[in-house]
C-alpha cells in the first residue's frame, strides 16, 4: 500500500510536469485544430491587455466602473473627466461576476474609488464565465485568484490557459508585447474606455427569451456587494441601455429589476432614457458613441439628483 501511494504520488508529479511542458510546446506549435482546449489570446478584443496594464499605474479614482463590454464601451471616461471626475473602467468582454470579483480583489485597493458603478446586463448572470476567464488570464497576471477563478469556472480551456499563462508570467514572456491603441474599429481611451468608430444598427427580429440566473454567478455577485459594503464604498447598479427591440424580448424584465433592487441602488436606463435603436446602437446590445454620450449625460444628471451627497463630495475634490 505504501509503495502504491508513493508511486502514484511520484507519477502524478511526473505527469503534471509532463503536462505543463507539453502544453507549452503544444500551445506554441500545434495547429489550432489540434488544440481545441487551448485558448490563450493576449491582446484579444476589447483592449483588455492595455486596460489591465494601465490600471496598475493609474492611481486613485473617484468612480470605478465594473461590468461587461457594456461597461467599457458604455462609460466614457472622458465625459466623466469633463465633469470633474477621475474614473477607471474595469469592464471586459462577457465579464461575469466571477471575473469581476477577481479584478476587484486585485485592483480595488490600488484604485481606492469613492463610488463604484457596476453595469449589470442580464445575460452575464447566465454565462458560464469561460470566455471572460480566458480573457482575464491571457491579459493579466496569474495568481492564486486566477486559480480560484479557474476552479469556479471548472473548464479545461480555462485550466490550460491558466497553466500556459502562468508559464508566460514566470518567464516574463509577455513583457515585450505591445497592444496598438487603435485596433480595427476600436480605439482605446485612457481610463479603460473603448470608443467604437461610429456605426448604426439595423434592428432584427430576436427570439423571446427569459432572464436566467446561474446560482454560482449570483453567489459571486453577492460576494462583490459584500466586499464593497465591507470597505464602505457606495455602489450603484446600472442596467445600460440596449435596443428596445432586444430589451422588449425579455419576458421577465420586472423580475430582473426586482432582484437588482435587492442588492443596491439600481437604475435601469432602458426605462429611464429613450434611445433610437438605429441611431444610438451599433449592434443588438452595444451603444454607439452618440448613444454613449446621451447615456453618460443622463447618468451624471441622475447621479446628481439621486446621489447628491456622494456626487457633490466627489466633484468638490
Amino acid at each position: 500500500m505504501k509503495k502504491f501511494i508513493i508511486t502514484t504520488t511520484i507519477f502524478l508529479i511526473y505527469s503534471f510536469v509532463f503536462y505543463v511542458v507539453l502544453l507549452y510546446f503544444w500551445g506554441q506549435y500545434a495547429s489550432p485544430r489540434f488544440k481545441p482546449n487551448f485558448v490563450y489570446k493576449i491582446g484579444s478584443g476589447g483592449h483588455t491587455y492595455t486596460r489591465l496594464s494601465e490600471v496598475k499605474i493609474f492611481g486613485e479614482v473617484d468612480i470605478l466602473f465594473l461590468g461587461s463590454s457594456h461597461a467599457y464601451r458604455g462609460f466614457d471616461t472622458r465625459i466623466f473627466l469633463n465633469n470633474g471626475l477621475k474614473t477607471f473602467n474595469l469592464g471586459s468582454s462577457s465579464q461575469t461576476p466571477i471575473q469581476t470579483k477577481v479584478l476587484l480583489d486585485r485592483y480595488l485597493d490600488r484604485l481606492k474609488p469613492k463610488l463604484v458603478i457596476y453595469e449589470v446586463y442580464p445575460e452575464i448572470f447566465n454565462l458560464d464565465g469561460v470566455e471572460s476567464s480566458l480573457d482575464v488570464i491571457s491579459n493579466d497576471k496569474n495568481d492564486i485568484q486566477s486559480l480560484k477563478m479557474a476552479f469556479k469556472v471548472n473548464n479545461m480551456k480555462v485550466y490550460n490557459a491558466f497553466i500556459y499563462g502562468f508559464i508566460h508570467d514566470l518567464f516574463g514572456l509577455n513583457k515585450s508585447y505591445y497592444e496598438p491603441v487603435i485596433k480595427g474599429d476600436d480605439k482605446y481611451v485612457s481610463g479603460g474606455f473603448v470608443e467604437r468608430k461610429i456605426d448604426f444598427y439595423q434592428p432584427k427580429k430576436l427570439e423571446k427569451r427569459e432572464i436566467i440566473f446561474k446560482d454560482y454567478q449570483l453567489a459571486a455577485f453577492s460576494e462583490i456587494i459584500k466586499t464593497l459594503k465591507k470597505q464602505k464604498i457606495p455602489l450603484i447598479l446600472v442596467y445600460a441601455p440596449i435596443p428596445k427591440s432586444n430589451y422588449n424580448n425579455y419576458t421577465n424584465n420586472n423580475y430582473f429589476d426586482s432582484i437588482m433592487n435587492r442588492y443596491a441602488t439600481y437604475f435601469n436606463f432602458n426605462e429611464i432614457i429613450s434611445l433610437n435603436d438605429s441611431l444610438h446602437f451599433y449592434d443588438y446590445h452595444h451603444l454607439n458613441q452618440k448613444g454613449v454620450e446621451k447615456f453618460n449625460k443622463k447618468l451624471i444628471e441622475i447621479l446628481r439628483e439621486n446621489n447628491a451627497i456622494i456626487f457633490e463630495s466627489l466633484c468638490k475634490k
Binding site: W26, P36, N37
Partner: peptide, 8 residues
Amino acid sequence: IFLIGMFM
C-alpha cells in the same frame, strides 16, 4: 492524460 486535457 494530456490528450484527455486537450480534447475533453
